[in-house]
Design a protein around this nucleic acid. Structure first.
Lengths: 257, 257
DNA sequence: TAAATAGTGTCTGTAAGACACTATTAT
DNA sequence: ATAATAGTGTCTTACAGACACTATTTA
């Protein structure tokens, strides 16, 4: 047995003796700000908790890692999303991880926050375990009317800010659209999130130059001039524009000092 | 006792009975990719582990949350940074959180990765507990020569990619500079990270328009034409430019689907 | 003087902003 | 024809790229 074998053996021996409950660990969870657009407004999915703590408070969708079946954190987020909405392939992005002593009355806890964008059509909500109710809540300026449990009001406003800031330089809103849509529809989605009107000519130029949309063979007729419908190209990744839309000053991601 | 009191009481009762070790939890840690520039190259801080697992392997600086003294995750990251380098106020940004079954042989583990930028001058390294050695390792193309333990090669390359991608549209490199520096020095820092030469005129125009630097009263004389020295304005936040430097195609932050 | 590094003048290119304009439908 | 919504023409503006040029030092 050479020295390398000895080292491996002793690591194996170490692992054999390792007791995971020897040291206290913070709790870890995953929360998701799941956005959609309904009736011309941005909404986020909330559940009403049926268990302590914060029983009967509204919160974002979330839960604990299933150490048996979840292979990684995103799997936990996807599982929660699918349990509640049936949606399997959303735009899902990790936003931030918040961990501190005070956010959960049970002690030190860490939560990784994802944000998801899903089209509004055809989603059927299921409250599921731990929730007595589930519903879409209208988001205005990063806030909902409901008083949220834990620090979820903060998680929501962070998620919304990130969404808004990324909309200035990416094609993210396409993930909120139905399968086919007109450029005007997409523009309205941008305007809704940015809370700011955009020039139609500049908007169309920007989106069409990105080459992420394909025109469909059909026009949509609803009473006035028909609109060309588009769909997202199958292979199109999220587009990052070289220049931002000029909007409110961006100051996301500011560092500590 | 009204209904609200009753609800509060029963939550208090719930918390009194709550047993944190009732459910298995993943382990949670914080790792930091601490970058500096030495001898004209980008370096990252590594330690050599003195304990299992991955005993005698090199890894990024990291460790467990101290549930008594750390008030939040960033406090853990700052504490680790200060223990190793003595630096107290770096640029410190949360990058991503990785959690899965396989990254640690002891089982499901979650780590939150920070990246830090510190000036090279006057830093004295201390290996400290759990480490037999500590040193700056040269980073080339997101990699170090050392074979890294756990999934730290991946954490490092992610950190480096994020750094590179943010350098295209922010003023981040100022945090790697000493107190005063010339614009040419700063340009060299950008070029080093981007691995791409920049036009001096365009570079100066870009940086000066951002109004984040103040000229000092002194010039630096070293043998040729003296250079105007600048310092970072005290109040200057990280600057986000409206346009990217044209570089390799940006594709950070791509979502799952 | 030459070598070396700091810094400028100025033209071009590109994509966004502004805004008036045309186009196509239903009634 | 009018209202309503879709979509265009085209001028301006802002800022990055390119690159030749000038400036200030030491030896």
């Amino acid at each position: 047995m050479n020295q390398n074998d000895a080292l491996l053996m002793s690591e194996a021996e170490f692992l054999r003796r390792y007791n995971p409950s020897e040291y206290a660990r913070p709790s870890t969870s995953v929360d998701a700000a799941i956005f959609t657009v309904k009736d011309g407004s941005l909404h986020v999915l909330l559940i009403k908790r049926s268990e302590h703590p914060y029983k009967d408070s509204w919160t974002l969708v979330g839960g604990y890692i299933d150490m048996e079946s979840d292979i990684d954190l995103m799997a936990t987020a996807k599982r929660k999303l699918e349990e509640k909405t049936g949606v399997k392939t959303p735009y899902l992005e990790q936003l931030v991880t918040i961990g501190n002593k005070s956010r959960d009355p049970r002690g030190w806890s860490v939560t990784t926050v994802y944000f998801a964008l899903i089209p509004g059509a055809g989603v059927e909500l299921k409250a599921g375990l731990g929730a007595s109710e589930i519903r879409w809540a209208k988001v205005s300026n990063g806030k909902v009317k409901e008083k949220l449990g834990f620090d979820h009001a903060l998680l929501l406003s962070d998620s919304f800010e990130r969404l808004r800031s990324k909309v200035l330089y990416t094609s993210l809103p396409v993930y909120l659209m139905p399968k086919t849509f007109s450029l005007r529809d997409l523009q309205k989605m941008y305007e809704l999130i940015l809370n700011q009107p955009l020039d139609p000519k500049s908007f169309r130029r920007r989106i069409l130059n990105a080459e992420i949309l394909a025109a469909t063979a059909t026009l949509r007729h609803n009473g006035t001039r028909p609109a060309q419908l588009y769909r997202l190209k199958k292979t199109a990744p999220t587009h990052f524009f070289m220049r931002s839309i000029e909007g409110p000053i961006r100051s996301e991601n500011r560092a500590s000092s």
